[in-house]
Design a protein around this nucleic acid. Structure first.
Lengths: 144, 144
DNA sequence: TTTAATAGTTGACAAAAGCAACTAATCATT
DNA sequence: AATGATTAGTTGCTTTTGTCAACTATTAAA
């Protein structure tokens, strides 16, 4: 068991650093990596709220609130007050928001391209298979 | 190809969030995650220098310098001036440094334990296999 | 032997994130 | 219905984390 923990930690170190190194290429944007993640999550979550994002990412709610305010100022999202509960505001991307996300997504693509630049077709397939396996295992066992 | 990029990005999002969520449990230490990484790297690199760390992690050299200074103040590392090049100082852990690292390591263990708490033996084996495959593929192709 | 490059330090600053106090609304209990 | 507890979100203030640029000292290159 001990050995296994060490292996996983090694992977965590390895992959964290990988991601760090391969995300510096196209990083000239008005949005940070965190903001990009949040934008992505908004776009893929229906009836998304600030408190949902707070919990999902485990960030401070004040921090999230400010990011949302920034998005709103930039017309990247719009808020739609809930009718049932007047405390909550649903958040959704605007047209411009979708454009911004697409742009960010394109940059992320470039980073990934960079990461697998020298990996041959076959190995990329294996790589993805391994990634999916990890997701599957960890997802199935951390639900509920 | 497009599909593959998307799969990898999905994994990146997934794993980044995983690591974020499962690192909040035992996070009461006088050293940050970044500092822990650096400490680890020092301990596993012979003739480690500030500039090596700067390049390895792609951090600002001023930032690294300050972290090293903090380590030094806390007697976690000691500096040994190079004889050949009087600009460079080799960095190595002290006894206390090894203790600190061990402590940090223990906390990281707990986080990993938490992450795989509900994963059965068999799946953990598969998980690690997949992780090693990823490391292997990405490592072999990004050398040089 | 000037010039350029490198290692490391430091001051000033910006960005990222957390903490705590607050308002407004809803929920739960009596 | 009145009370108190909880929740969603905002805001002021602070800390942490990280960058930028200027600087010294030393070494490498022309």
């Amino acid at each position: 068991m001990e050995r296994k923990i060490q292996d996983i930690k090694q992977f965590n170190r390895f992959y964290l650093r990988m991601m760090g190194l391969f995300s510096m290429y196209t990083d000239v944007s008005s949005y940070s990596a965190t903001e990009a993640m949040i934008l992505y999550e908004i776009s893929h979550t229906k009836n998304c709220t600030a408190s949902y994002l707070t919990n999902y990412f485990n960030f401070d709610k004040g921090y999230i609130s400010r990011i949302i305010r920034k998005f709103s100022r930039n017309n990247v999202i719009k808020r739609r007050p809930s009718e049932e509960d007047r405390r909550v505001q649903y958040i959704e991307l605007t047209e411009k928001g979708r454009d911004v996300l697409e742009e960010l997504s394109f940059k992320a693509d470039e980073n990934v391209q960079h990461m697998i630049k020298h990996v041959d077709e076959n190995d990329v397939t294996k790589l993805i298979k391994a990634m999916k396996q990890i997701e599957l295992i960890l997802n199935n066992n951390n639900k509920g």
